[in-house]
Structure formats: structure tokens, C-alpha cells
Design a protein around this nucleic acid. Sequence first.
DNA 1: TTGTCAATTGACAGCGTTGTCATTTTTACT
DNA 2: AGTAAAAATGACAACGCTGTCAATTGACAA
Lengths: 356, 356
Amino acid sequence: MRYAGTISKRNNNNMKVTINDVARLAGVSMKTVSRVMNNEPSVRKKTSDKVMAAVKELNYKPNLAARSLAGTKSFAIGLVYSNPNAYYVIDMQNGILSRCKEEGYELLIHPCSSTDENVLDEIQTMIERSRLSGLVLTPPLSEREDVIELLDSLNINYVRILSGREPTEQEGKSNAIFVNDHDAAYQITEHLISLGHKHIAFITGEEEHKSTLERLAGYKAALSEHNISLDESLIFPGKYSFESGVEGAKAIMAKNSKVTAIFACNDEIAAGALFASRLMDIKIPEQLSITGFEDSPFSKQTWPKLTTAHQSNQDIATQAAKLLFANSRPTKIKEEKMAVCFTPELVVRDSTGHIA
Amino acid sequence: MRYAGTISKRNNNNMKVTINDVARLAGVSMKTVSRVMNNEPSVRKKTSDKVMAAVKELNYKPNLAARSLAGTKSFAIGLVYSNPNAYYVIDMQNGILSRCKEEGYELLIHPCSSTDENVLDEIQTMIERSRLSGLVLTPPLSEREDVIELLDSLNINYVRILSGREPTEQEGKSNAIFVNDHDAAYQITEHLISLGHKHIAFITGEEEHKSTLERLAGYKAALSEHNISLDESLIFPGKYSFESGVEGAKAIMAKNSKVTAIFACNDEIAAGALFASRLMDIKIPEQLSITGFEDSPFSKQTWPKLTTAHQSNQDIATQAAKLLFANSRPTKIKEEKMAVCFTPELVVRDSTGHIA
DNA sequence: TTGTCAATTGACAGCGTTGTCATTTTTACT
DNA sequence: AGTAAAAATGACAACGCTGTCAATTGACAA
């Protein structure tokens, strides 16, 4: 395979180009070059041009290590997650990365298991050894008080991605992105109700995840709003996994013949429920409607395609990163309005239908 | 949620602890502390103990930026990929990360689109600004000559993950991990043949991917070995995507009624073929057998479950990282034998069956 | 005990930037 | 033109660590 683009005049003289080289070529001091590189004010246009020309000619790239050692910024932020969902994680990474690229930052990723006792130490070590200038936290880590306490005590800038509608009573007001699982779940449930379903089962995710609680709450709110009495026995405690969906659907169908719809707490569970339905020879959506949540790529690939709630994790991540950088900026607040609350949208596909 | 583990005596005095502090407390020079931290020889056990004690007491963590600036190592390696498959990428990251953790390195991830003209520049910039000490390349980037040329000219240590059986004629002998797609494809095809199939269609991935060619070659080899004449019209040029599988299966079944099996170049394609079969009301595996490749998580979640070839991307990635670190070690070669060739293994599930 | 050589340790410069603060240049007025 | 204030620029130390090389210590043989 051959490189298709323009052959760029790559500077491969193999010698490190330092700020000093640029300064000499441009006929200014190192400090001035530094100013230009950092977009600091108080540099004459003419000077700046000279410097930029020299930078281009030498193909100069500031050394991040030196920059972070000498300065106060570190040019790296971290992403800590314990979420096993590959699609979710990739979207998060890409969303944050897109913003990092603009800011010239690097992203250090740090997967960890939330059950591991050492998470706190790991996070602290990560922050201290790399002198991270910020951190993005995803659920369920973002919901852990001890993690937040640690970050506060470390005096580090962070943004949490949270399930909820509003900055809660907690202080965490300006450094969180909210995903309104409640209202999305409400919509899904309402959709089911509008199709005539009255006996709607619910398969939950891990109860440690706030999203589980929020979605469940939205479901309950919709039922109540439409005067459908809540039947606690229709709520099956599960995990955010395919297997959980399989089990859940089996259990539900086995013990309750009245159920005509299942609200799965995410797409994986829904896919599992779909699978179980096949096993039990239950026709979807003719005999049973199933809904997912998240709109993962595979929700379009199941048979039938899943009705679900679409949330763009990449957008959420980008906003989180934006917020992080905005907060770390020296008081230049509110440079642009930022969405801090996302409500996933109902996407009706083929796994839900009118009650028979 | 509350932190379950032992409450560690966290040193949150908020003051940076430097190597100098440790040196003073231990009553040695900074250089000696440095030696201990880097496991250099020529440090008396007694001295080392003193230092370690001080390190622990102060909860000292070496500053990566300073380390990389002063020393020759950078404590960061990079992972460059243009692969859209979330599962693949996550596995790669985790595999590499597990090794990085042991070595105390950080991982910088760098997704990029292989069609982008700027990949070369991006890679170069990434390497130079972070002074990366190594790079792991995944297909298809790892197969691009121009990328390799660039890395060589940059004089950077790298490991490629390649599709193939052996270090090819090319120089790249000691810095590549091979995935033997050919033999795995051979096995899959043989499996199909053993079930009585003689008209086996093949849906390819992007032809720029060497894996596509290797898998196709394995398929052809198996056919030939079993005296089944190759029918080029049964080869459907596709992409590594679900949609491609849908289209491919439709096209194949539309124009050739003799086909009883489809070899899909990966699981996504297979899932798409499965989906299309449902659309066309074709029973799997009774009327048609379908095989995947890679054993993605969802290959156990399709209906029916996919027969595929299992490859542990995480292991592959770990080996790649191992090789990378081994190569960068100053001539301490062959510290442990390393697997450099992986052959995915046939996993028979429910999407293949005897010919009717 | 003393000398010799290897093992251990330390002093110090320097990695490539930026922060601080002093100096020079420009601008805006009288 | 002359002056004060503002703007632009530069000199230099410092960031926290490791490489180099010199100094010290210990081990061992004579």
C-alpha cells in the first residue's frame, strides 16, 4: 500500500529541534518563542510571524515533558473507567480525544475494576506521577464518594459523567455532565404503554449504578402517570449483561404469563432477552415487546432490531472534556455555552409492537 | 457507596515529594535514590532498604516528566490504530496496558483514520512531542510501508501486529507478532467441508487488509486440498462490516442456489449474513451454514451462535508489548521465550451443520 | 597492616521548557 | 521633542530527575 497524500517535506534530520534553535533562527529569545507557542498576549504580530516561520522551517515540536516540568500545565488528562462495555469506552475515548487534539493534550487511559480495593491508590498514583491536569470520570466510579473525596483532597480538576437531571444537592455543580436517564426511561415506558402494554417487566442493571435507579424511577413514574399500578414482582434484578437478559427474560416469562413487554435496562440485556425469547419460541414483537437502552451499534443488528433510547456517548464525552478544559482555564469562564445535560431519545425500531 | 478496602495512610499533605526529600530522609544522595528507583545494580542491600523505607514513608512517586526529560527513556509508549472494531481496540488496549502497568509505563492511544492523508504527520508529531519510547501498530496501519519507513527514519522502537505465518522476506523479523489467519481459515473451511459442504461462498473484508488475503488464501488452500474446484463467482468482495454481510449474503443467495455455506471474513460480516438469512427466511444451519472469524463477544449472542475462529486479541497485545519492552532493553535479549505467532482456533457453535 | 581493585556512592551539570522579573521598545500625551 | 506609561522582549533560574565521572568505601590478598 502506498501513501496517497502529498509527500510532505518531512524534517527527518533526526536531530531534536529545540526551542533554542527556533529562537536563534527567528532572531528572538527563547522566551518569546515560548510565548508564541503558548498563544500568550504581548507578542507583536511581526515577531510572531517570524517565529512561526522558523517553527515551520525547522518543524519544531515542543517537548511535552519539558513543558510540563517547567510549567504548571501537564498536557495530559486522564480517563478512568471500570465499565466493561467496549462500545461505551471507545466512544468516551474518542469523544475526549477529539477535544484533546484541539487543545494539544494527550489522554492517559486507565481501566480498572471497580471492585478492586486499590482503585484509590491507583488513581492517586496515576495523577501524581504524571502530574495530570485533569480527569474525566465515568460511572460507576464517578458516583463513588471516596473517589471524589480523594480527587478533592488532591486538589485536581475533574469532570464527572453522572446519571441524573440536575446538579444535585451535592456541591458538584460545575464539574459534571448529566445524562437524564429518568426521562428517557419515562419515554420508553410511555411508548410501551401507548402500544397497549400494561404488564411491563423490568430487568435492572447493577444497582450500584445510579443509571439503574434512574431508569427504574423513570419507568415507575410513567406507570404511575398512566395509572398503571406498579407490580414489584415484575422487576427482575440483573446486571448490565447479555446473560442477565437471558436469565431475566426466562425468569419473567416463566412465572408471569401476563407480561407483554420487557423494559431491559440496556441493549445488552435486551439482546439477551431477545435470545431467550428465541429459546422459548416467543415471537418478538407479536407476543412480547422488548426495549433496550443506549442504542449500541448492535441494537440495529439484532433480530428484530431493538427499540431503544439513543445516547451519543461520544458527544457526552466531548462535552465532558470541554468542561474540563474550560474549568482549568484561568477564570476565562463561560466562553461558550455548554450542554451539561443530555436526554437520550427514544428510537422506535422493530422489537416493540401493539399488544396482540 | 463506600470504599471497601483498608484505609491506606494516604499522604495527602498536598506537597510534592521530590527525590531530594527522600534522599535527605534516607541520608543518601539523590543519585542513590534514583538508582534504587530504577533497579540499577551496585546498590548495597542496606542502602536500598533505607531508601525504600523513606520512599514508603513519604509516599514518593517519581515524576514522569522529569524522568523522561533527564533520562533517555520516556515512560510512555503509543498505540496507533485505525480499526473501527470496538472490541478489537479495547482488547488491544487492555493487553498492552497490562504490560505497561508492570513496567511503569503509560500508554498514549492514537486512533486515526487510515484514509486520512495526515496519518504520517500525526504519528510523527505524536512520537516527537511525547518522545515516545515505543509504538505498537495494528493492522492495517502495521502493513503500510510508508508508516514503517517513517518509523525507521525516526529511529523509534516499534512492534507490528501482522497477518501471516512467519517473518516474511522483509527485514521486520524481530519486531512483529504474527496472526496466522491462513491456517485458521483453512481449519474453518475444512470444518465446513467435513460437514459435506462443497459450494462454499466467501465474503471478504477490505482487500487492503492482509488478513483478508490470508483468510482467502487459507480458504482456497483447503478447497484445493480437498479437491473442490474453486468457483471465483462465489467470492463476494465486501468490507468488515455488518452491512457488508447483509448485502453479501443477499447477493450470494440471489444468484447461486447451490451455495450451502458462507465463510464470512469476520464475525460482523457473519452476523450480517445471519440477519439477511432471516430476511430471506433461510434457516440456519439447516439450509445454510455460516462461519465468522475472531470470536467477538457477540458471536455468542447471535442466533444461532456463530461458529468462528477464536483469537485472543488481548494475549496478542500483551505479547506485542512484551516484545516491545524486550527490544528496548539494552541487549538483555531473550529473557523469556515469547510467542510471536498465534493461530486462531476453530470454535464450533451453532451456525454450521451437516448439509441437508 | 597495607595496597590494590572493585563495588558503592556522591557532586554536579544539564535535559527543554516556562515563570519571574528586569530591560528595552513603542505608544500616547504634553 | 520630551516624558511617562504601557507594551514587548529578554536574561536567567528553576522544574525534578538522570548521566557522567570523580570520590569514597569495602574486600581481599600479601
